[in-house]
Design a protein around this nucleic acid. Structure first.
Lengths: 194, 194
DNA sequence: CAAATACAGACGACCGGTCATATATTTAAT
DNA sequence: ATTAAATATATGACCGGTCGTCTGTATTTG
């Protein structure tokens, strides 16, 4: 990885952290370069605009997660239900550390879907990918052990993933783990065979 | 209702609509007064700050809904399951019209929880109230017809409400009703007796 | 005619984005 | 290997514009 790529990566990491907590419009270019300890003028040699930065940050955060999740979700030594539970727990992301971060994708979805079509499309694509990953595990579970619900895996996956995003959101306002606990408690009700 | 109160109400209504679509930081005082066709200088005779406006808007939007919902949720002529379903469908709010609005409370939660403690507390309180309303209906259903799930109503209510908020969020990015359909399809699975 | 309210416009601060200049790197001739 | 010209990169002062807020004046009210 070149020096330039490293610096860009650092800018994305540091800026992402700020933007995930303060939002897109609540984060200035100055905030980003300050967080990364990079001169402001340099920002535009790496990104063509603030919007471009957000999209690249969005890509980075899911790319990293996808790599991490692919291992987990394809690990046949763990039963599907356990895999799915871990998937959710592992991905609470920024929320975990101090219940401050929230889900960056969720933030961008809520704040920017109407203002930037480019961001909306990127967010939609990423949500789709995650939903698909859940659907695959659900389908595998259905074929292996059966599934309590007879509903299509696609519907179940969409429901579950949205429920999880809502849970992350709620954690941001409540600053406690109760929403997550409720989610993890109800999850087996839908999932496992009696 | 005095002339002044009417104007303030109008300011809240018009500004709320803008803020629900563009977010808090994406909406300027100028945007709000333009939408309400009120001179900018007047804004601060009604609200002591932008933050204060957001909090009052938050209060208004839930007050209106609570009035509307209290009728529905206490209507014993409809069975609890049907009441709950209608509650969710009726409250998709801004999303319904053109899939543009999203849930204002959800927006504020994601964008402002870290920046304004006052907004966070207000949002948390409102989410609690709504969750409580759902819990009450669930408990009533449990006593009347029984409930498929044996989990505490409080846990179920928290899960369901968060799932619904996540559904509204997803609709903002996907601009279609599929997330809502998935939610309404899965809802009876958790709810009704077999 | 006081007192209170409504309003226009100004205020300093900061925004996203640009650009002339300073610094570093490469190239090529000796 | 050294040097100097040529090229690329880095930077922070700066731009027009907009931000949230406030102040001084006009208007309404009792």
């Amino acid at each position: 990885m070149s020096k330039r790529e490293l610096k860009k990566d650092h800018l994305l990491d540091a800026g992402l952290k700020v933007m995930a907590t303060r939002g897109y419009n609540g984060t200035s270019i100055q905030d980003i370069v300050n967080a990364a300890d990079v001169p402001k003028g340099s920002f535009y040699t790496y990104f063509k605009s603030k919007e471009d930065f957000a999209i690249e940050a969005l890509e980075k955060v899911t790319e990293e997660r996808m790599v991490q999740n692919r291992h987990l979700l394809n690990d046949r030594s763990i039963c599907p239900q356990e895999r799915l539970t871990r998937f959710f727990v592992d991905n609470i992301g920024g929320c975990e550390e101090n219940l401050n971060g929230g889900c960056f994708i969720g933030n961008m979805c809520q704040e920017m879907s109407e203002s930037s079509e480019a961001i909306r499309i990127k967010v939609r694509q990423m949500l789709r990918n995650s939903t698909q990953a859940i659907e695959d595990v659900l389908e595998e579970a259905r074929l292996k052990d059966g599934l309590k619900s007879q509903l299509p895996s696609a519907v179940l996956a969409e429901f579950l993933f949205n429920a999880w995003e809502g849970t992350l959101m709620r954690m941001k306002a409540s600053k406690c783990r109760e929403p997550l606990n409720a989610f993890l408690t109800v999850l087996p009700e839908l999932f496992s065979k009696p």
